[in-house]
């Protein structure tokens, strides 16, 4: 049996037995290479389930859909390692109870999908630890290094060029499982810290705010980057910030559901070489 079929059978069983009330997975999309989020509530609906290497969206944000978890019934969800890490963060930030989430883990490499052992988020700790080990290498990116090698003026010009295209559709925010604030800072106007207009200044400010609020929280799933309709390379900023918190505080996001958020904790001996 293929992994897809194995999982399909499991999903049907989970629903038929009433173990979970819903399974969040994937189904075919408009074109052959697209997949759609699929909310499965009955065993029959599981027939449409697809699991292959085109399933790339991190679905964990849907768990915070209004009312979904409030009845305390379990929900199962298909997640790759980055998605599993986001469950840890959402739990650590008290957005959900990880006990309620049953993980159907998978990973894909070279168009090959593999199943991940485990159901509860704690069972993936060893996996996440090994991802952390590889993170310094994995976060490397030639374009990122090229930007770091630029003078500040050139860097500013590079981002100015990118951000000038932003249309403030907030798809990056809406697609991100970590951007769950009921009221985003850019939607607040008393006081209004950053411009809501989509001129380059406003776009620059928006993108700085977004990146800052995701520093040490981003799991690198790429939802934001793929959602951006004008293809701003948001992944570069995210990766840069992930490198920064890893280097400065040995913090890798989403290690466990009790991990302290990096910017809501401190050590007395944190580095402060830059402070006069």
């Amino acid at each position: 049996m293929t992994i897809q079929e194995t999982y399909k059978a499991r999903v049907k069983k989970l629903l038929a037995s009433g173990t979970v009330k819903m399974v969040i997975g994937y189904k075919p999309g408009t074109t052959a290479d697209r997949r759609r989020p699929h909310f499965i509530r009955t065993p029959e609906e599981a027939d449409q389930l697809v699991l292959d290497s085109a399933c790339i969206t991190n679905l964990s944000g849907y768990l915070l859909s209004e009312g979904l978890l409030s009845d305390e019934k379990a929900v199962a969800i298909f997640l790759k390692p980055d998605g599993i890490r986001s469950i840890n963060i959402l739990a650590a930030e008290a957005q959900l109870n990880s006990e309620q989430i049953l993980i159907l883990g998978f990973d894909s490499n070279d168009n090959q999908v593999t199943a991940l052992e485990g159901e509860k988020v704690e069972e993936f700790t060893t996996l996440i630890e090994s991802i952390k080990e590889q993170a310094p290498e994995a976060l490397k990116n030639p374009l990122l290094e090229q930007i770091e090698g630029m003078t500040p003026k050139e860097r500013f010009a590079f981002w100015q060029g990118e951000f000038s295209r932003c249309i403030k559709c907030y798809a990056c925010r809406q697609a991100c499982p970590m951007c769950y604030c009921r009221r985003c800072i850019v939607d607040c106007n008393q006081p209004q810290w950053v411009n809501t207009s989509s001129h380059t200044l406003g776009n620059f400010e928006w993108n700085i705010v977004r990146a800052f609020h995701l520093s040490g929280r981003c799991v690198g799933c790429g939802n934001c980057d793929r959602a951006c309709p004008v293809n701003i390379p948001l992944r570069l900023i995210n990766a840069k910030m992930a490198q920064e918190v890893l280097g400065a505080f040995d913090h890798f996001s989403g290690m466990s559901h009790t991990q302290e958020p990096v910017l809501a904790s401190f050590k007395k001996d944190d580095s402060e070489t830059f402070i006069l």
Partner: peptide
């Protein structure tokens, strides 16, 4: 500050 500083630096501020 540590984090914000790195971010500003990276965006050319």
């Amino acid at each position: 500050w540590m984090v914000f500083r790195a971010l500003l630096e990276f965006t050319g501020i």
